[in-house]
Design a protein around this nucleic acid. Structure first.
Lengths: 235, 235
DNA sequence: TGGTTCATGATGCAAATGCAACATGGCCTC
DNA sequence: GAGGCCATGTTGCATTTGCATCATGAACCA
């Protein structure tokens, strides 16, 4: 079931509050939201768990904003192996690299891993058409720069994990990053074993095995998806 | 030896033509360059092969632009293993993710792999201080969005390589990407064996061994850093 | 010319890892 | 409650890979 935000007659209701928390809309005033959506238009769509929101090879000129649920940016290769590049919850934005980079053909897929609602914003119009006259135009651009830049740093962090030579190092690097983010040696990963393996670029059973070895070696303790690093201190 | 571009008295000489070819300065008119540099200031520095331009943990509010030479974005871990995240030639920009993302502390290092000249631009002033009044301000922002977005796509491409489960798949994915870029099944990598291994996140000797196996298997032929994919056709 | 440094290639070996197959247990539906 | 689906854990095995080591050859410098 789709819900169209008609130009000029924006119905955002409960979504409004959530959108205000999206970094992309920082400093955009309530009153400007109306003009914004009138300017570019927006469309909300619902997806069921497992649905593909974007598919590798698709063309898009809209960015997606997760309203509720959870989506993953993935890529399947010819052998059916699936790599997870990103795992996104509410208020996250996806697809912006392709729209803003001017290459509208997606090289990845985006899949709902829970029932999800997604708001689509034809951002191409902001990047390439909309006259700078709109008051919020410049603010949006600035926010977009900051957002993509942060995502960039995240991608480099992930690269740091996947370029490690051993599964143990990958896991330790991943956990260290989580520990820094969560400011605690005990961290909870949003990913289960299957997804974690796909995220690290490793075999699931090999991962389980290595986790046990790391526990035996006294490096970590863990239960389900909660891990505690034993070798670092937070003073 | 450093050369300062004094505000209002910009001496760009031969560098001017090169800067015009930098995507970040697309649509910036010759006449605006003067105002641009007066507005933010700029500094050129020279580095010798092996010098560190940025070091992991440094703080910077300037982006770097490679004028000549070649630099690499790397990260060394506690064991001395070095991962190469990016390999940049003239007209490339680096450090922009940290400056634009608002987290000025670098989590990577940047090293000159050849004698190099780098122009530093205090981009923070453009992002966070400079009033939008400057005519080129908005253009710069737009260009920056596009540039970071493209870099983002590149990073995801690299992730696609490093998340593969086997060295053979990594190499095939890497070569396929080069083939697409260069529109030819025969490609030349800018990286030698040592750097290629660091880029793929693998052991150098293991890489050489696997390359030989791939040749024996008829997947590729290669000589030095030029490789030909045997299984794809360009119609 | 001789010596040094460095990238590259080769190889033995132990350890890590992918892969396949099977068991278990939770959760959901009918 | 029965059955099915799916995430997770376990294990054996063959392969891959990292790592250490040595040899070779090119580039560079004294």
């Amino acid at each position: 079931m789709n819900q169209i935000y008609l130009s000029g007659v924006i119905k955002m209701h409960e979504d409004m509050k959530l959108l205000q928390g999206v970094p992309l809309f920082k400093y955009i005033k309530d009153t400007e939201f109306g003009a914004l959506f009138a300017c570019v238009g927006a469309k909300k769509e619902c997806y069921e768990k497992g649905d593909f929101i974007f598919f590798n090879g698709n063309v898009t000129s809209s960015i997606g904003i997760v309203i509720s649920g959870r989506v993953q940016v993935i890529k399947e290769d010819v052998y059916g192996n699936c790599a997870i590049f990103n795992d996104l919850g509410p208020k996250s934005v996806f697809g912006e690299s392709f729209v803003c980079g001017g290459s509208f053909t997606l090289t990845v897929s985006v899949q709902a891993v829970e029932d999800s609602e997604v708001l689509f914003l034809p951002f191409e119009r902001i990047m390439h058409i909309c006259p700078s006259a709109c008051g919020f135009h410049n603010t949006l651009l600035k926010n977009m720069v900051e957002m993509i830049a942060r995502k960039n740093i995240k991608l480099v962090e992930k690269l740091e994990v996947t370029t490690k030579h051993s599964l143990r190092e990958k896991m330790m690097t991943y956990l260290s990053q989580l520990a820094q983010e969560q400011c605690s040696p005990t961290v909870t990963s949003p990913l289960g074993r299957v997804d974690l393996a796909a995220f690290l670029g490793a075999d699931r059973s090999a991962l389980t095995r290595e986790l046990n070895r790391m526990r035996e070696a006294g490096l970590i303790v863990f239960d389900k998806n909660t891990y505690t690093l034993m070798n670092i201190s937070f003073s």
